[in-house]
Design a protein around this nucleic acid. Structure first.
Lengths: 186, 186
DNA sequence: GTGATTCCATACGCTACCGTATGGATCACA
DNA sequence: TGTGATCCATACGGTAGCGTATGGAATCAC
């Protein structure tokens, strides 16, 4: 399934964890099963991590960094305001399955995980709040009042999440969101 | 946790399954654990169901019936068009946790379950399609073209789902959706 | 009330996973 | 090439859940 015989780094386990999470949900985060997928044994796991909780914490750290900062960094050079938001739509709807770590495909599993794991919930909430604040900033730069922009951002981000859950085509989703931006802008 | 000593019906196991699903996700659908919650043993389970797959199938039947038809029946007497949609917003955002079966709180878990269980995915997709068609009907009755109404409905329903995932207050969510209806209507 | 049916408790073997302990393989580097 | 550090395979005991088999309790028919 993966490279046959090679020494693994801690990050390899983290990425394999995301693949498992994407493919089978939180219940698939089992040490021995993932070890088999990596062509190794749990001997490797317990070298890199103290226990499954440690592993999951490392995954969450990784995700919080990736899910928020890296996308925004890509948008930073773009002109502020609604153009930046439209660029975000293209990025967000086009986020395909990343074979390395599952990419955005891991998010639904993470959100469900967050429902009954308070620490995960805290992280997802931070990421959501950060993203919504970013979108709100776009609307503000587009001329909205702060309070209005916050509402617009919340609705926009909710639509983005919901469209993702409906699993339509990226093009259709992007079209929907562009129209929403237009409507919110007026 | 539940009634101490009483004979259980098949439906009791189905409802207990939804409570477990709501509280702990798909991974919590384990026979012996739920049996303990019901104050019984798996002896009862294997009397009412042939195996866990049978149990889950019964839960899905139950949900598909409840999640779609019952809400629409409540809306049927209302005047068609956007008023009916606004009533739906009030119902949908106000759906609290139902101690019997988890109510709408079970939906996120079901959606995540659907991601890696094709049969569940088919059911969720049917329910979504039905709901979106209903919403589209409201927009059509409000004067939209069929194709436009379909897009409006998709966006509206996505926003409804996304706001639910964000776990804001019902009032805020309802307010957001009302504004969205206004915008879409124009 | 008694016999049949319905429903459940318990015990058993099986599998999968966790966590640890220990020795061996592989690598970096001199 | 040797030596310490790094990384992993294996074996073991413990726990939890599945599925079945079987006897017993509760309930219903009459």
């Amino acid at each position: 399934m993966d490279k046959p015989t090679q020494r693994l780094r801690r990050e390899d386990w983290i990425l394999a964890g995301f693949r498992a999470l994407t493919a089978g949900g939180v219940g698939a985060l089992r040490v021995e099963a993932v070890a088999r997928g990596l062509g190794t044994t749990k001997g490797s796991f317990y070298w890199h991590f103290s226990d499954p909780a440690d592993w999951r914490a490392a995954m969450l750290d990784y995700w919080e960094d990736m899910a928020f900062r890296r996308i925004l960094v890509a948008l930073d050079p773009l002109p502020a305001g609604l153009p930046r938001l439209r660029a975000l739509v293209k990025i967000a709807t086009g986020l395909a399955y990343d074979p390395a770590h599952g990419g955005a495909a891991a998010e639904p599993a993470l959100r469900e995980w967050a429902r009954f794991a308070p620490d995960v919930g805290a992280i997802v909430q931070r990421v959501d709040a950060g993203r919504i604040a970013f979108v709100a900033g776009c609307f503000e730069a587009g001329g909205s009042e702060a309070a209005t922009a916050a509402q617009q951002a919340r609705l926009f981000y909710a639509a983005l999440l919901g469209l993702g859950a409906l699993r339509g085509s990226p093009d259709t989703d992007a079209q929907c969101l562009m129209r929403l931006i237009d409507m919110l802008d007026k």
